[in-house]
Design a protein around this nucleic acid. Structure first.
Lengths: 112, 112
DNA sequence: CCTTGATACCTTGACGCTCTACCTATCGTG
DNA sequence: CACGATAGGTAGAGCGTCAAGGTATCAAGG
């Protein structure tokens, strides 16, 4: 029940993660929370989506990880953007804008 | 080579097809052409994506198909929207707008 | 004490969609 | 006659997301 389809469109998760991490080192759990908050609860990243995505991005050298302590005194894996990651973020942000514009064109000029 | 990732974000093809078919009966090949033209060549629907999608939408009773003759005198399968299809189009169009807005929020208010 | 909920990490398996690549057939043009 | 455009289709693979499960720590409440 609830949502018939998945919350996210495939391919957008990487963009969201890169964007959030771009603001500074942050751990996985907080990334999901941040995305949820910033989207006003419209986007909820499942942990089963989040962690594989983080490992994927790390494997592609777009993120770098290191264990650190949170403000609450717990160990957590903090991710930060590499130079390649920053470049990738720019690419994906542009891709997204071009894609959204293309959809807008097909959906018709009649938009409020 | 070429595009590293898929042209389309998963889930948007149905929306595009429904929108194009909403304008009146049209056959598959023309749907792909129409989407490509309207998006100013940004979106190219592969036949291997198109036909399975059409069969899927027909199976869900959102489209109805019948063989007819084109203006050029060839047989083609013309698709048209059912009542359920029209409703689905509204739902997916709304979903898309909410989703695009959510991404915009996460990407930051700092937009040109 | 002990349970509950939040924080924080992770894996597994299934599902769905799109892609590449391939196939058939007709028509018009060079 | 070969080719590109039109028109339909299938098969296999890849990939990302999801649901569901697991571990462990910490704080608060009963």
């Amino acid at each position: 029940m609830g949502e018939a389809k998945s919350d996210l469109l495939q391919g957008t998760l990487d963009l969201l993660i890169l964007q959030v991490v771009a603001a500074g080192p942050i751990h996985g759990y907080a990334i999901a929370k941040r995305i949820q908050q910033r989207s006003k609860d419209a986007l909820r990243i499942q942990q089963g989506s989040l962690y594989p995505a983080l490992h994927r991005l790390e494997g592609r050298k777009w993120l770098r990880a290191k264990w650190q302590e949170t403000e609450t005194g717990r160990e957590a894996k903090f991710y930060e953007l590499t130079a390649a990651g920053r470049k990738q973020l720019e690419i994906e942000a542009m891709d997204w804008e071009r894609f959204a514009e293309a959809i807008r064109l097909v959906m018709g000029p009649a938009r409020s």
